[in-house]
Design a protein around this nucleic acid. Sequence first.
DNA 1: CCCTAGATTTACT
DNA 2: GTAAATCTAGGGC
Length: 186
Amino acid sequence: MNILPREFYLQDTILVAKNLLGKKIVRKIGNQKISGIITETEAYRHMDDPASHAYKRMTERNKAMFEDVGRAYVYFTYGMHYCFNVVAKNSEFDAGAVLIRAIEPKEGLEIIKKNRKISDFRNLTNGPAKLTQALQISKEHYGIDLTKNGELFITEGIVKQKRITSNPRVGIKEATEKMWNFRIKI
DNA sequence: CCCTAGATTTACT
DNA sequence: GTAAATCTAGGGC
């Protein structure tokens, strides 16, 4: 399975958010492997997006959003949860990232269940903090390169007709009129 | 099924 | 000091 190249992420953040649907996240832990198909994403941009962490300026937390595309932006929130983003933007913007909100587990289901401590299939990876738990993603992966075959990367996924639906983004208070949440059904 | 409350720490104001 | 791109359990319907 081919890893997505750097150029894939060098486009408008919103376009990348849509294009990431149906792609595959691969997580390697030692000789074990977990993977899943991306089913829900959200785009967060820069100056035009009050809901974005990068809206005001660069800070210690959000600096990854201003740096290389194709890398991970992982942040800690609500005192207990990590969320996983992919840095993506075109040259018009200084910052941008795509929040991965949900995946459909493919490989390593046993490991995922163990990490999540539940077996209810529907609740395994259907939220941004659930999937970081399932894939054991944490701040150690801040800035990791997702275009290299390492601990964590993204490859081509299912190649079939995608029916993308747009929705308001979840859990934000600003810019709720922007329909930058995207989903597919598998 | 829906709703509410509580968990718990970081980083920005 | 306080809000935060969330999740879970528990109660009611």
